[in-house]
């Protein structure tokens, strides 16, 4: 599935949107301007962008604690996202959810999730709805290498394969379950090896290569829409920031050399160089994309800072319908 030039530009724009949003959010968190904690997606942009460019607003995704990138790539709006992570009333969740529960039901983003591995069973439910209603929509569930050891993920994968549901499981293998390296949390190297045990195809792809992700995700999504059942697509990637925030807790669980090696394969730098080399975008056009996103991010932050805190009288709203 060869991407058109328009699709390549679209993927590029989505990746840049994630990168700049996350960098600014990280600065705000470390400056103490944001309550709570953020889990940032910098380094993994090729995965969200390469998958989401295949989806419409009617397709659903479930996300993770590291969910901003998924929402941005799915079409989330910066001003509502910033307002939410600032805890303001104009946020996506009216300030009730924050970073770990950010969601947009209008575009099928069924929530970031603070519980590792909780999303896949919910995505199975969304895929069940798609099959029940014969809507042709597909559900995509993102989870990490850490989550791949949760029972919920195995239960969801088995049920999806059993019912041949229109769903794709995307394992974002960034090499760490929080601070624990993959080799210390599972005896396998490729999470996709488990696909055979579930009765679905397992595919491993370079998660730093947006085109590779696009092509593999395209096949899996096409298969799901055609009623041929789920795929487990593992994207090998890396987070450039810490588990929480930018510098995180200062724990020495991975080496500077390792980080530097992965940063040489920065998905945006690599992709942009290719686009320029192939005359799909010029260096000037690429800069315009960055500048526009930068301005939109700043406008989003200003909107959020001007948005009121929720009224304490709203405390009990929306516990029940």
């Amino acid at each position: 599935m060869q991407p058109s030039d328009d699709v390549l530009r679209d993927i590029h724009r989505r990746m840049v949107r994630i990168r700049i949003f996350e960098q600014e959010a990280g600065k705000l968190m470390e400056a103490g301007k944001i309550p709570g904690a953020l889990h940032l997606y910098v380094g993994e942009e090729a995965v969200a962008a390469g998958v989401m460019v295949h989806l419409s607003d009617a397709d659903q995704i479930t996300s993770t604690h590291r969910g901003h990138g998924h929402l941005i790539a799915k079409g989330g709006e910066f001003h509502k996202m910033f307002a939410e992570i600032f805890g303001r009333v104009d946020g996506y969740c009216k300030g009730k959810g924050g970073s770990m529960h950010i969601s947009d039901m209008q575009i099928g983003m069924l929530g970031a999730n603070g519980i590792v591995g909780a999303g896949p069973p919910i995505a199975v439910g969304a895929a069940f709805t798609n099959k029940f209603k014969k809507s042709g929509n597909v559900a995509v569930s993102f989870f990490g290498d850490g989550a791949s050891n949760e029972g919920s993920v195995h239960e969801a994968a088995n049920m999806a394969a059993l019912y041949k549901l229109p769903i794709v499981f995307i394992c974002e293998n960034n090499g760490y379950g929080e601070y624990t390296p993959q080799a210390h949390h599972q005896a396998i190297v490729d999470v996709a090896d488990r696909a055979r045990g579930y009765g679905m195809p397992g595919v491993v792809v370079d998660g730093m290569d947006a085109v590779a992700v696009y092509e593999a995700a395209g096949e899996a999504i096409k298969r799901a829409r055609a009623g041929e059942g789920p795929t487990l697509l593992e994207c090998k990637t890396y987070r450039f920031f810490d588990h929480v925030g930018v510098r995180g807790m200062g724990l020495s669980y991975r080496s500077d050399d390792e980080l530097a090696k992965w940063q040489q394969r920065d998905p945006i730098t690599l992709f942009e160089a290719t686009l320029i080399e192939q005359n799909i975008v010029s260096a000037e056009e690429a800069k315009v994309v960055h500048d526009k996103v930068e301005a939109e991010v700043q406008a989003g932050i200003e909107f959020a800072e001007a948005s009121p805190m929720p009224d304490p009288a709203a405390l009990l709203d929306d516990v029940y319908k």
Partner: peptide
């Protein structure tokens, strides 16, 4: 369903959130 209570309840949550 399979004997998978977490999967079953998750299926219910996801199906309900998407209109069933």
């Amino acid at each position: 369903t399979p004997i998978s209570e977490e999967g079953i309840v998750g299926l219910g949550v996801g199906a309900a959130a998407t209109g069933l």
